[in-house]
Amino acid sequence: LGLPKMEVFQEYYGLPPPPGAIGPFLRLNPGDIVELTKAEAEQNWWEGRNTSTNEIGWFPCNRVKPY
């Protein structure tokens, strides 16, 4: 089972920042694999864990694709 995984195809370094105070941003590099921890199809921002860095944070969902 486990959490859904997504592959990063466009880098994200915190700009634009996540809206409001939902949480810290998650740095993404192309090729990184992100395990989704909070993701809803109608939301533009998802939370996940970058398996390369083990960091957890928020990122724009348009930077990832199904793994």
Rank of each mutant, 00 (worst) to 15 (best):
W46I: 09
E7F: 13
E11V: 06
V8N: 02
W45F: 14
R27E: 08
L26P: 00
G14E: 03
L1M: 15
E40L: 08
G20K: 09
E11Q: 08
A41M: 12
E7C: 05
R49Q: 10
V8T: 06
Y13F: 10
G31H: 05
P4S: 15
T37Q: 11
N54E: 14
Q10S: 06
P66H: 07
P19E: 06
G57S: 00
A21G: 15
Q43W: 08
F9H: 08
R63N: 07
E47H: 08
I22A: 11
F25T: 11
N62E: 14
A39P: 11
E11L: 02
C61S: 14
I22S: 10
E7L: 07
E11T: 12
Q43P: 06
E40I: 06
Y12F: 05
M6L: 06
Y13S: 13
G2W: 11
L28H: 00
G2P: 05
L3D: 14
L36H: 04
S52P: 01
K38E: 11
R49K: 13
W46N: 04
N50H: 07
G14Y: 00
E47P: 02
Q10H: 05
G57W: 02
P16S: 00
V64R: 00
R63E: 00
P60H: 01
K38N: 08
N62V: 06
R27F: 05
Y12L: 03
N54G: 14
E40R: 12
N62W: 04
V34Y: 02
Y12K: 02
P19F: 04
I22Y: 14
W46R: 11
I22L: 14
N54W: 06
Y12S: 02
E35S: 09
L28Q: 00
E55P: 03
G20A: 10
T37M: 12
Y13M: 15
L15R: 11
P19T: 04
N54A: 11
A21V: 07
P18T: 07
L26V: 10
L1P: 07
V34D: 01
F25H: 14
S52R: 12
S52D: 10
F59A: 00
G20C: 05
F9E: 09
N54H: 09
G31L: 04
G14V: 01
A21D: 13
G31A: 05
N62R: 09
L3P: 06
I22V: 15
K65R: 15
A41E: 14
P16A: 02
G48N: 00
P18D: 03
E11I: 09
N44F: 15
N44A: 13
N50C: 10
P17L: 11
V34W: 02
Y67A: 13
L15H: 07
T37E: 05
P16E: 04
W46E: 00
P4M: 15
I33M: 11
Y13R: 12
G23R: 14
G2Y: 15
Q43G: 14
P60D: 00
P16R: 00
G31D: 05
I56M: 09
N50D: 03
G20P: 10
F25C: 14
Y12A: 01
L3R: 08
P19R: 04
Y67F: 10
N44Y: 11
E55K: 12
P16V: 01
W58T: 02
D32L: 01
N62K: 13
K5E: 13
Y67N: 06
E42W: 10
N62L: 05
L36C: 14
A41Y: 04
P24E: 09
P18F: 04
G48C: 02
W45E: 01
F9V: 08
P17A: 11
W58L: 04
A21W: 09
Q43L: 12
M6Q: 14
P60V: 01
V34L: 08
L1I: 15
F59E: 04
S52K: 12
A39Y: 15
P60I: 00
V64Y: 01
Q10L: 11
K65T: 08
P4C: 14
G2E: 11
K5A: 11
D32K: 02
Y13P: 03
Q10N: 06
Y13H: 11
G23W: 10
I56R: 12
L3S: 07
P4R: 15
L15G: 05
P30F: 09
I56G: 06
N44M: 15
E47A: 08
N54S: 12
V8Q: 00
R27I: 10
L3I: 11
E40S: 11
A21L: 06
P66R: 10
P17S: 10
P66N: 12
L1F: 12
G14S: 00
N50L: 04
R49M: 09
A41S: 13
I33S: 05
N44D: 14
W45N: 03
P30Q: 13
N62D: 11
P18E: 03
